[in-house]
Nucleic acid binder design. Sequence first.
DNA 1: CCTCCATAGATCATGCATTATATTTTCTGC
DNA 2: GCAGAAAATATAATGCATGATCTATGGAGG
Lengths: 221, 221
Amino acid sequence: MARPQLSDEVAAHVRELVLTGQLRAGEFVRVEKLAEDLGMSITPVREGLLALRGEGILTLAPRRGFLVAPLSEQDLLDLFWVQAQLAGELAARATPLLDDEQIAELGELQEKLVTALGEGDLTTVERLNHEFHRTVNRAAGSTKLAWFLKTATRYVPLRYYQRVGGWPDATRHDHFAVLEAFRARDPEAARAAMVEHIRHAGRLLAAHADLPEDTGDGTTG
Amino acid sequence: MARPQLSDEVAAHVRELVLTGQLRAGEFVRVEKLAEDLGMSITPVREGLLALRGEGILTLAPRRGFLVAPLSEQDLLDLFWVQAQLAGELAARATPLLDDEQIAELGELQEKLVTALGEGDLTTVERLNHEFHRTVNRAAGSTKLAWFLKTATRYVPLRYYQRVGGWPDATRHDHFAVLEAFRARDPEAARAAMVEHIRHAGRLLAAHADLPEDTGDGTTG
DNA sequence: CCTCCATAGATCATGCATTATATTTTCTGC
DNA sequence: GCAGAAAATATAATGCATGATCTATGGAGG
């Protein structure tokens, strides 16, 4: 697979630029320049930017161009609130659906995570964390909830968690609580543990990111 | 404004086709045919379809085309669950932010709604319902929560509520409960009333729509 | 049953018309 | 004659149409 779907490449590229602060709120995203930078024509670039508008990351001023939507610290907390509610519901739903084998698998993932953390291999920690959550969310079996969760998660830059102080330790701690709830087959405990886990991560990330306190305008696009 | 953004027109058009069942799950959406039907070129059509993929309504099979994503009755209930959580949170946040004037305005909207309902003017009922919610959601002042709510709401076909038996009466009843919570300045009561209102609407809509019980596959796109 | 080829369709590149913004010019009032 | 505003022009970038390329599918032939 050489380069499937150039527009996806554009979306991923620009999303990173925005979330890492290389493109700042209010700035215009020039189609032609992007096309040149990425070595492609403007058509797929425009398509990718339209997709990002759909994600709420860009806004479109007709005949003026695409510009970066404002993102305040409160926005980030709100996004994590959404993530927490969704991940909590998925964990609760997954609880009665997880069989012994799957719970054992989650336990193994967590063991590996602890090991990697001991070795300071944060990239592996982040990968295992991702797998842990993916296993839970798939088990819950709700396409639409998973879709919303994925959308909320897109606001976290790639490979970002490992750079956030305190996150790896928090993850180790929080996952044990989630696992325990699964083993006890207690859906509401699983929900509570998962909600707390996500909000925990959100607080750490919001404190780490350098964002304005609030954007002031209630623009929805 | 003659025809701003053809791709938006495409997205709205196809969204309606899908949600009203004129395009069914698994069917391919042919770009060229759509372009001819709507009297435009294939470029904006493709752009519109990419936007719908971003909404989770279509999926993209590379080099094969766009096809309608499956939507089960459970999916619809899940979407309303999301809607309910978000609308509830927004109502709770709005409660301390609404001033007397805004609450009075909501009361007036509700009075007009009752009147319109008495006259059997369901189109006006739906419009007033929309205004009622919009007022609350704007007052809450969270761009991101509002964005997710809007996205979840897009799965309800336009002018659909008025065709759902029992919805108008349910709305009249439920809105009073929400209003009372606002007047009592009780955020949690407002949340509970709003959650119940949305879930109520969701149950009615799911019962009205003719959808498969479950799609079986856990495809997320 | 496997291979090769024809065809339909998606995907991307390019070009043109349209529109918003910046700049310059012209007009008006003092 | 000069300052400021309004109008006209120039420039730049979007938005759409068209055309070329590439890929996946279905069927004929081995």
